[in-house]
Design a protein around this nucleic acid. Structure first.
Lengths: 194, 194
DNA sequence: GTCTATAGCCCGATAGAC
DNA sequence: GTCTATCGGGCTATAGAC
């Protein structure tokens, strides 16, 4: 693995732990065992480093969503897989939430390059949720309640982000599982006994 | 208004804008027109200052919830009023979200005094939502979907927090309004034509 | 590519005059 | 209560040797 990738991996970890403004080149250098100046050789500025880390994260998410798109299965099952993915991440380490959700709270002080990456990521996820919901051939619970596909997609994104923050705050994945269950019920099929 | 209150007001503003680690005594001093040392006279440490600001915020929320408790009206109407309150805050200024929701993303690096205030606030809000939902005499939409009162309460909190972050990220209250509508539909009464 | 050294600035916090 | 002055440390970023 290249040194640049080492740096991005460690940076990713420290951003999740401390946020944009509270992690430093010194943190990364100390963890890898190099000097701060060496990081500047690979990533000239902090804005550049974080943009690279977020860009890499976005690519990873995109390829995961494309993989789900290529699979058999109903739309709700794909959404469930996405939720399961994050549940597993939180089980391994409560710190491990969506990089963009974490950085979003620092929006006003982020460099513009990073801010636009975060917005684009949220937009992509919402579009993906919306497309999935539209693809469903049978009516889902929320459609009976005067909630549009787009509103539900935004509701899913907000629920996931809020649930991640709650799980992290209490160091308890159960907080996320409750949101997951509630969201999955909303997008479940309407059946006769309901 | 006392000097200590001035300081807390300005601190509140800068925390919402920059978060815990990126706001400074110098920011506050500059805004008010005093010296950094004067702030240390009123609030010995940064942890102490932020705990005071969060404590004051929690008191304010508590008294608002108590006011809603004392009013006539169905449980859903009280929840709607709470959502309307935040919608108005966001309309005035997209920065103005829940202080604890904002600080929650910095949980791992916050001083323990602040961390426990945030947890306690989330717990109080969730308890209030749960109590309201239990009080409803008629079945609500979510109860038809195998979602418990407690799960719905957590879903409301997560939705509000995620919605606030989205509205702030895009500087667009519409992002919050969609969540509000979706949540209100879930807690609306089950009627014959649905 | 990595190092040492350092510039230039910001930080929280304290001492002590007034 | 507010000030000036300062301590000891952090930060991003750069210059230049190797």
């Amino acid at each position: 693995m290249s040194r640049a990738e080492d740096i991005m991996n460690v940076a990713n970890h420290f951003i999740l732990e401390r946020g944009y403004s509270a992690f430093s080149y010194a943190d990364i250098a100390g963890e890898i065992g190099i000097q701060k100046a060496s990081i500047h050789y690979h990533f000239p500025s902090k804005a550049n480093l974080v943009q690279s880390v977020v860009g890499r994260y976005r690519q990873e998410v995109k390829s995961n969503l494309a993989m789900l798109d290529g699979m058999e299965g109903e739309p709700q099952e794909k959404l469930e897989q996405y939720l399961n993915y994050w549940e597993t991440c939180l089980e391994v380490k409560a710190l491990d939430i969506c990089l963009c959700a974490l950085l979003a709270s620092e929006i006003p002080i982020l460099p513009e390059e990073v801010r636009s990456e975060i917005k684009a990521h949220f937009q992509e996820l919402t579009d993906w949720f919306t497309k999935l919901l539209q693809e469903s051939k049978t009516p889902l619970q929320y459609t009976a309640s005067n909630v549009s596909h787009e509103e539900m997609a935004h509701g899913i994104l907000a629920g996931i982000h809020g649930g991640m923050l709650a799980a992290r705050t209490f160091n308890d994945v159960g907080q996320f599982r409750m949101i997951k269950h509630q969201l999955l019920q909303q997008i479940s099929k309407v059946t006769a006994d309901q």
